[in-house]
């Protein structure tokens, strides 16, 4: 390994499913506490203490759920594509497992962003669905997740499925900016100067600070659920490994 000093040590450790399983197990309680604290605190702040918007009133409080889930859905896709690329290039099993674990989480967050956006649209625009640029982009992102999940479940061999999904996720990653740009441009063409949900000229501190707390809380929550899925995936894929057998037997003996 001495000739490969340019790669940090943890990168090689990450490649070991066993090490990954253990470190995730150690980190999980901390992240769970962090996520719980931030999400509960942020929700109370958002619902009770944050001021109501002068135009939208209290329906504005949906932003504290809509924006974090939308941001996370996008970050999750990015992570999925990058993990897939690492799995493709370095043949790293753990990266494949991360990519596979990301897809359902990202899809569920995209659904949450879509539903909250639709609910928010009702008091704001007067209808449950509006072909708003952001909502439409989010819908397409959701479709991309569905495609990735469908492909992954259609291919039987685990390693082939991981590689094929990684290619698809990367193609999607290249396309996401193009899709976003084209949808935004299409939107301005058809609905000139409509009222945007989340584009505020200047949000006061009392409004965006709880939003920041919620976004960080969602990231922490994402880490928790990702690590949980990752640990399951590691156990399942490594079930023939000696350390997994030892672990299971020691647990069952207790």
């Amino acid at each position: 390994m001495s000739d490969k000093k340019w790669m940090p040590r943890w990168f090689y450790q990450l490649a070991s499913p066993r090490w990954c399983y253990q470190i995730c197990g150690k980190l999980l309680p901390w992240f769970t506490a962090l996520a719980l604290g931030l999400l509960i605190g942020g929700t109370i702040w958002a619902l009770v203490f944050a001021p109501a918007d002068y135009q939208q009133g209290n329906s504005f409080r949906i932003i504290y759920l809509h924006v974090p889930s939308a941001i996370l859905a996008q970050s999750c896709y990015m992570l999925m594509a990058i993990a897939g690329a690492i799995g493709l290039i370095w043949k790293m099993k753990v990266a494949d497992m991360v990519a596979k674990s990301c897809a359902p989480i990202g899809a569920s967050l995209a659904v949450l962003a879509l539903l909250t956006g639709a609910i928010w649209g009702k008091p704001t625009w007067g209808s449950w669905w509006v072909w708003d640029a952001r909502l439409t982009s989010m819908l397409i992102l959701f479709f991309l997740y569905l495609g990735v999940m469908a492909l992954n479940s259609a291919i039987e061999s685990e390693s082939t499925a991981a590689q094929a999904t990684a290619v698809l996720a990367l193609v999607g990653l290249v396309n996401i900016p193009i899709i976003k740009y084209s949808v935004e441009w299409w939107n301005t063409l058809h609905q000139p100067a409509t009222f945007k949900l989340t584009e505020k000229p200047a949000m006061p501190v009392e409004m965006w600070l709880p939003l920041l707390v919620m976004v960080i809380g969602f990231y922490a929550f994402f880490a928790v659920t990702l690590m949980m899925r990752l640990r399951n995936e590691i156990l399942r894929r490594e079930r023939r490994a000696g350390w997994v057998k030892e672990l299971l037997l020691s647990k069952s003996a207790v």
Binding site: A150, L151, I179, V183, W185
Partner: peptide
Amino acid sequence: ALTVGLKRGGVLISLLVLPLYIPVLIF
């Protein structure tokens, strides 16, 4: 190419590809 090894790739292709077609459709 991604679905060529599968027996029933037809519907899956549309699922994978249609979202990526959107920019071309718009322009």
